[in-house]
């Protein structure tokens, strides 16, 4: 199936001379949740802004649903919902009016039933007549999501949607995102909470310095780049790794109180049994043993560091 969003060789240099994107290419499949990860200033928001029509590209092209975002902007923008990073709202408007305004802007006739459903799904129904300036930050964030969903988009961009949002609200937001995905909406999100991406995304794209460093299925990424560590806490501290254990990839940490052993779970032999036997043979007494899987965050940091 053709990708719903296709970014090809996209570049952007701002008037200030800052190059935010350096020939980025990325295909986003219909119905998936893609997490776009990258440090501040990596180019995430610029890329989203170009796809949505807020910023002009310096080079390259983008299609949404097979339509060019510049030439066929009416078709592409009608398909897209955008939740921006900043809490930008009309302070003196009511929730109902601002969400209805967004629907109209996207060329859709008024549909009070749909607006009511969106507001109820986002627990905003009882605030529909409140002015936006009366709402808390978390509620404003939900209003922005409601605005983006007001015209029933097929592609939803969530730029840092959970920044400054409490845990309960964050969970209910992800429930909404899962429901949307189940109804066939493609979702592209950027987040600083990598554990969220780990929990919700189907694929991960890592961007830094205006370049895409990697695009991978989340599960494959975790298997490919994720490592496991065996941590052995010792009863007696060691000065150095004993000679008898030199054939193992061991590091001594915690003032000689623990040994760290990196191993590959996909390998036929992990070496754990042999290591434990060697430790017993060397007369080293153990206090505790634990293993740890490297998280997406570890992988992300590693990729970004390697790219520098």
């Amino acid at each position: 199936m053709a990708p719903i969003v296709s970014v090809s060789n996209l570049s952007k240099t701002y008037a200030s001379g800052f190059t935010a994107l350096k020939g980025v290419s990325l295909d986003i499949e219909q119905g998936e949740i893609l997490a776009l990860l990258g440090p501040n200033g990596a180019g995430k928001t610029t890329m989203i802004s170009i796809i949505c029509g807020i910023v002009n590209a310096s080079g390259g092209e983008v299609t949404v649903g097979g339509h060019d975002v510049v030439r066929d902007f009416r078709q592409t923008r009608a398909m897209i919902g955008l939740v921006p990073q900043e809490l930008t709202t009309d302070a003196f408007e009511t929730v109902w009016n601002t969400v209805s305004f967004s629907r109209g802007l996207h060329g859709k006739k008024p549909d009070p039933a749909h607006i009511e459903k969106v507001l109820k799904d986002l627990s905003l129904w009882d605030k529909k007549d409140n002015m936006l300036r009366e709402l808390s930050g978390g509620m404003k964030r939900r209003v922005l999501i409601a605005k983006a969903l007001s015209h029933e988009p097929r592609v939803l961009f969530l730029d840092e949607p959970t920044a400054g949002v409490d845990v309960t609200l964050r969970k209910s937001m992800w429930d909404v995102v899962r429901e949307l995905r189940a109804s066939g909406v493609t979702i592209i999100l950027t987040t600083h909470y990598i554990e969220e991406a780990e929990e919700i995304a189907d694929r991960i794209a890592v961007i830094n310095g205006g370049e895409i460093l990697l695009v991978e299925e989340k599960a494959a990424l975790m298997t490919k780049l994720g490592r496991k560590q065996l941590r052995v806490d010792l009863a007696q501290p060691l000065d150095r790794v004993p000679e008898i254990l030199s054939s193992y990839d061991l590091t001594l940490e915690g003032d000689g109180q623990c040994l760290i052993f990196d191993y590959d779970t996909s390998a036929g032999r992990t070496g754990i049994t042999a290591l434990l036997a060697a430790l017993a043979e060397a007369g080293i007494r153990l206090k505790d043993i634990s293993t740890r899987q490297s998280s997406l965050e570890d992988i992300f940091v590693e990729i970004v560091e390697a790219g520098r």
């Binding site: 029509g53 807020i54 009416r74 923008r77 897209i80 955008l82 921006p84 802007l105 996207h106 060329g107």
Partner: peptide
């Protein structure tokens, strides 16, 4: 942002 990202000339 909203006006600029809408399907409007």
């Amino acid at each position: 942002y909203e006006v600029l990202s809408s399907p409007i000339s």
